[in-house]
């Protein structure tokens, strides 16, 4: 890398730019530095105590529009047809074929509410439907959405769990959605079962109340985490969901009541935005636990608007573009005046 000519040729050390100072002046600069730092520390401490965040989330905003429809858990419900879709990119797969087929690169998210419940519909491409987890080597397709325990859009301060406020995760699993097998024949055809009728005590996981036990597991696990390895089921399993698979992939609907009194679970209020992120597991790829694809952040806000007709969404960007033009005009004006 050689000298580049132009201004940089003559650029010199910052020492003289910032200051070339005698001892007395250095002292005063030091005092100034201490004063600025002290003021900043006080201001930061105040913000910390007030839990006020000077920054605003800029991530993709998803509006949960109001619907009058009697919405169920059917992912194919017509009420979703006109709901705006947001595509969130996922981190590329970490398998040996980073560009290979079948890797999930994005989820499409829609949101609705009916003043009672929040509905999220998540769609992602997956050519294989991995529902059965009967065999030791079979893993389930799954999707999860994660919120800060206290609804807030304060990237980066709160998201993804801190000791002071953890995260609430709703995980839908294809195998749980399909329900427990009715007979062993479903899992292992032609297997002779010596003791077909057994008591609950012959299922230790069931006895101790493991929420992932096939018998008890709902389609959606409501989980809480607060730092290291603390992920565990929430006391109330208040999240419902259902997914369906077609040629394109999975479409899953998740539902929970807007307000929650349980600790560690956010309440969704009108006009309040909260961060969220999604994760997708591809069972065919032996994905489970940390082997997953994770989305970028988005913010979710409840809206009073109902599902819009086509085209009305142009207005806001139009205004924004005009504002941009004004900024450029000001900048150009500034240049012209000064030159």
């Amino acid at each position: 890398m050689g000298r580049t000519g132009g201004d940089t040729m003559t650029s010199h050390s910052d020492v003289d730019v910032s200051s070339v100072a005698g001892t007395r002046n250095l002292l005063t600069r030091r005092v100034g530095m201490v004063l600025v730092l002290a003021a900043a520390v006080v201001a930061a401490a105040t913000l910390q105590i007030l839990d006020a965040n000077p920054a605003t989330s800029q991530t993709t905003g998803i509006s949960a529009l109001r619907t009058e429809a009697d919405l169920g858990l059917d992912p194919g419900d017509g009420a979703w047809d006109r709901v705006p879709e947001t595509e969130l990119p996922l981190t590329a797969q970490q398998t040996s074929y980073p560009f290979g087929g079948g890797s999930v690169t994005a989820v499409t998210v829609q949101a609705l509410h009916d003043d009672e419940s929040l509905y999220l519909r998540v769609t992602w491409p997956d050519s294989t439907s991995d529902v059965g987890t009967g065999a030791p080597e079979a893993f389930s397709d799954a999707v999860a959405v994660q919120f800060p325990s206290v609804a807030a859009a304060t990237v980066p301060a709160v998201c993804m769990g801190q000791a002071s406020s953890g995260v609430n995760i709703w995980q839908w699993r294809a195998d749980s959605d399909a329900g427990p097998p009715d007979t062993m024949d479903e899992i292992r055809p032609n297997t002779v079962v010596d003791v077909p009728e057994t008591a609950n005590e012959d299922y230790p996981a069931r006895v101790v109340g493991n929420p992932f036990d096939a018998e008890d597991a709902g389609a959606v696990q409501n989980l809480l985490a607060e730092g290291f390895g603390t992920i565990g089921p929430a006391e109330d399993q208040a999240v419902a969901g259902h997914g369906e698979h077609d040629d394109q992939g999975w479409t899953v609907v998740l539902r929970r009541e807007l307000s929650s009194t349980a600790g560690g679970e956010p309440s969704f209020r009108m006009g309040e935005a909260t961060d969220m992120a999604f994760a997708v597991w591809d069972g065919a790829n032996e994905e489970r636990n940390g082997l997953k694809s994770v989305s970028a952040f988005a913010t979710l806000a409840l809206s009073n608007d109902t599902v819009p007709g086509a085209g009305s969404g142009w207005i806001i960007p139009l205004v924004a573009v005009m504002l941009a033009a004004v900024v450029i005009a000001i900048a150009r004006g500034g240049m012209r005046r000064s030159s």
Partner: peptide
């Protein structure tokens, strides 16, 4: 360690 499909846990 062996996987049990009826509880979806390992025993």
């Amino acid at each position: 360690t062996m996987y049990r499909p009826t509880t979806r846990t390992t025993e």
